[in-house]
Design a protein around this nucleic acid. Sequence first.
DNA 1: CTCTTATTGTGTCAAATATACACATTGACA
DNA 2: TGTCAATGTGTATATTTGACACAATAAGAG
Lengths: 262, 262
Amino acid sequence: MDSAQQTADFAANGHQFFLPHLSIDCVVFGYHDHQLKIFLVRYHGHEAWSLPGGFIKRDETLTDAANRILAEKTQITNVFLRQFHTFGDSPTRLNRIETQQIHNKIYAKVNVAIGEDHWLSERTLSIGYYALVDYHTLIITPEHLIEEYGWCDIDKILPLLFDHHEIIETALLTLRSQIYQLPIGYNLLPAKFTLPEIHALYEAVLGKTFDRRNFRKKLLTLGLVRQLDEQRKIGAHRSPFLYEFDLQNYHKALEQGAPLAY
Amino acid sequence: MDSAQQTADFAANGHQFFLPHLSIDCVVFGYHDHQLKIFLVRYHGHEAWSLPGGFIKRDETLTDAANRILAEKTQITNVFLRQFHTFGDSPTRLNRIETQQIHNKIYAKVNVAIGEDHWLSERTLSIGYYALVDYHTLIITPEHLIEEYGWCDIDKILPLLFDHHEIIETALLTLRSQIYQLPIGYNLLPAKFTLPEIHALYEAVLGKTFDRRNFRKKLLTLGLVRQLDEQRKIGAHRSPFLYEFDLQNYHKALEQGAPLAY
DNA sequence: CTCTTATTGTGTCAAATATACACATTGACA
DNA sequence: TGTCAATGTGTATATTTGACACAATAAGAG
């Protein structure tokens, strides 16, 4: 949907090819500079930001839809992407007028008026997916209606449309609850990382602090990471060693749900 | 929907009051006789069984819909009910012909033919909820189209319609992963229970065995249960003591995710 | 009445793990 | 060469886990 014409066509005829009443929203997590971040977009006509999202094609599996939508909005493919919750309780989502007005402002850019009976004004439940992305790999060709996009620190989230705040909150709780069962560290970190980086990641996701020495001891005792010969230059300080995951031991630990720290 | 007329009306006009393309299926867990069980129904015209399910009203929150559907099919209210996954990948769910045929056989009972373009033939995603129920409290007034219903042992599940097998499998995995974070033991057991009962419940849910003595030690160390003065008669054997949960300590342990056994 | 059988109730000890904690090293820059 | 801020590393203690065996009880059979 990169031209005005295609965008207008979507508004006019989308209901023929997409399921109404149902959308997918993606919470894309990245990690950089000891901060957990979320990728957000800002649509035409709005000051508030949004999660990247879209609709499900009528003949497409749900998993395919989630991957396609993520790829369309962010050009990201082949990443860890997982469903976490379906949202259908928020009053905002039940309010047709509000839904209509939000879409109406967005599609004003392509001179399409979204009326009260337009399919985009209908009540829509949203299936939440979260993605784990290496912060540096992100390349964007924004869609026509997106005026701005970028990473946002998890603890400084800007005002958002619909119930996207609740969706992010739930995604974060899910991330927390799954960090010892799913390869969340692996997918948020680059292939080579330092101990302070992985340490700060676990602290950022879980929102508490761990003793540096005990954390390292646990990683090494379980054999989750391998020290490399390289070091990273970090300016006026001692150069930390780089590490990589030992995938065999890492996946074994995830299967057992072994906590890295308490 | 307890009369033939109401049922026929639903098939004819349901799409005006309910969201199409979207249903809710409930995996109702119970526990009895050291066995984890699931409540299943069998519709007219089918040998295969189904999960109790239904559609979401256009102006109803998702949570309200789940509770209403559970109440309509089982008369169960005010129980632990939680969304766990939305299903939209199964080929069965994408196949309109198959969907049509299944509904056609069911509604034959009320002389309604479900055609290819009927709203019930459309592709439908399903939002899975699981409920935890005290086995003994179940009272049923079955709906018109339900020919049979009852509990089914988790390890002897009968053939099922649609992708209901996958839904149950996912519900069970969810139960397992949440047993140390959510009050699953509390909601599956009666108010008073014996140590062997709670022990066998954790073994049934998690699918492994725990040392009886260490399990008891952990329960008591954490102060999760209180021994009562009563005992239960169990026939030709020593009478076990009855216990009840210490809710304060139990909830504290759940917040921390403390495992009861390994 | 007593013997048998199946089930429940209970304690101890060794091994593993978690937790608390402090000092040395490095790299840049003043 | 001294300072500063960050990284790298080890030890001792407390706690938890995991393995394990015997006594008590209830009912029914003989």
